[in-house]
């Protein structure tokens, strides 16, 4: 299981802004271990889905060039305070994480 996602979602007028931070190593597969000099296997989030009250509002596909502990922000219309925001990711090693937050 991946670590929980930190989510801050705020609605201002008709626009809901979501900011999310995902603790994840995002190993590119190109780095070497400082001690053993062995390549560290690639381990990175490949897919991210964001839902508002069960409806997908954004999907992201990522490569290993997204920074460690990825941060993403995006906005959509039609949300109101109290609605549910759900973010789910999957990585190349089969790990995943899902976190829900309330739109404020």
């Amino acid at each position: 299981m991946g670590k929980p996602i930190k989510i801050r979602a705020k609605v201002k007028g008709d626009i809901s802004e979501v900011k999310a931070l995902m603790p994840h190593d995002m190993e590119s597969g190109l780095r070497r271990d400082a001690e053993t000099n062995e390549l560290i296997p690639a381990h990175y989030i490949t897919e991210l889905v964001a839902e508002h009250n069960g409806e997908i509002v954004m999907t992201a596909y990522w490569g290993p060039a997204v920074s460690r502990n990825p941060y993403v922000s995006f906005s959509f219309t039609g949300g109101v305070a109290g609605d549910t925001i759900k973010i789910h990711w999957e990585d190349n090693q089969g790990d995943s994480s899902t976190t829900e937050a309330v739109l404020k």
Partner: peptide, 26 residues
């Protein structure tokens, strides 16, 4: 100039505000 240049693709929906932020490695 990254070894694999494509870093991220964001698929939006008709409800999306067309603006995304992310952090990338260079």
């Amino acid at each position: 100039n990254n070894p694999t240049p494509l870093a991220a693709v964001f698929l939006l929906t008709p409800r999306s505000i067309p603006s995304v932020s992310v952090r990338i490695k260079m």
